[in-house]
């Protein structure tokens, strides 16, 4: 268990970084670098982490960071890996770190290209469900019913959240998985597994954002756990795009979605019909997922 190995030497982020109090992304990258380090190079697309990592000459990570333009994360990662291989440094793990904007919307074509070429990189999307760094604009990762600064009350996000895991599974990549900060053991295990596989690997991390979601900063881990317990963000992994496997299931039935929504101001003025609609959407997705996951793999 992660908590049994509290070796500070393994930590690769540095105190003093610029994340907001209670930042889920900071926590996600802490677990990520800890699991994959120290021989690690990070490609950072425009996202919260561009700021969190600090302006040169300061850095919040004990590994090289390559900042890159918004749509190019996949291509820059591919280039960096190939360059390292050409220089005989192929053992360095290349991680592309992108927010949901750099993955779901702006970065999707480069991501798709890199996945199709099966580049030997780990693409980690830390998903805070909107463009939080630039002022909380709606992205295609924003869930139905949420309010953002581009959809203020009485508006709300319409349409479903894009199912990025299905998109990645459709590319037939060797490994794709979901993870979240309330389950650091699960996350570390998935990252270690990803590191042991060659080819394009995709990790989708739900990272709560207190200012963007309008939640208490203390609730970050709790919300992340509730997201899993309600089935809003199930934890699973996909091998080769076809072999779906749950890694965490509630022993009892899923919690009602309202337990998760009630703690976030972005869902505050959501009326009953919309909550029911979102719950139904979730139930559909759960049913779909359970069909994908064989009965033996429901863990």
């Amino acid at each position: 268990m992660l908590v049994d190995d509290l070796n500070r030497e393994r930590e690769m982020i540095i105190s003093g970084h610029n994340a907001c109090p209670g930042c889920g992304a900071a926590l996600a990258v802490r677990y990520l670098t800890r699991a994959l380090g120290p021989n690690l190079a990070i490609v950072l697309t425009a996202s919260c982490w561009s700021i969190i990592a600090g302006a040169p000459p300061l850095t919040a990570l004990k590994c090289p960071i390559l900042h890159c333009p918004f749509p190019s994360a996949g291509s820059v990662g591919s280039g960096l890996k190939r360059g390292l291989e050409a220089k005989g440094k192929g053992d360095t793990t290349v991680v592309v770190l992108a927010g949901d904007g750099g993955t779901f919307d702006i970065g999707l074509q480069a991501l798709s290209g890199a996945a199709q070429r099966n580049e030997d990189i780990i693409f980690v999307c830390y998903d805070n469900e909107a463009y939080m760094n630039t002022g909380m604009q709606t992205s295609s990762a924003t869930p139905f019913g949420a309010r953002t600064n581009t959809a203020p009350y009485p508006l709300f996000k319409e349409g479903r959240k894009k199912d990025i895991m299905q998109i990645m599974a459709a590319h037939g990549i060797p490994y794709a998985a979901t993870a979240t900060v309330a389950f650091p053991d699960d996350m570390e295990a998935k990252l270690k597994k990803a590191q042991s596989i060659t080819g394009f690997r995709f990790i989708h991390v739900l990272s709560p954002c207190p200012p963007g979601w309008g939640s208490e900063s203390a609730d970050t881990v709790h919300l992340s756990r509730l997201a899993v317990q309600t089935g809003f963000f199930p934890l699973y992994e996909i091998h080769n795009g076809v072999d779906w496997k749950m890694t965490w299931m509630t022993d009892k039935s899923r919690l009602p979605l309202s337990a998760y929504l009630d703690r976030q101001r972005r869902f505050k003025q959501m009326d009953k019909e919309k909550i029911v609609a979102l719950q139904e959407e979730l139930d559909d997705e759960w049913y779909f997922l359970m069909n994908k996951v064989g009965p033996a793999d429901r863990c």
């Binding site: 509290l6 109090p21 930042c23 900071a26 900060v181 609730d219």
Partner: peptide, 30 residues
């Protein structure tokens, strides 16, 4: 384990808060 700022120091097996970096998010208390 859950400190996003690595502001919890471990010495001699027990834990102390490094208030130079603690942003006061409250995850630890929660």
């Amino acid at each position: 384990l859950f400190c996003p700022d690595l502001a919890v120091d471990r010495s001699n097996g027990s834990y102390e808060f490094n208030l130079d970096y603690c942003k006061g998010c409250g995850i630890c208390a929660e």
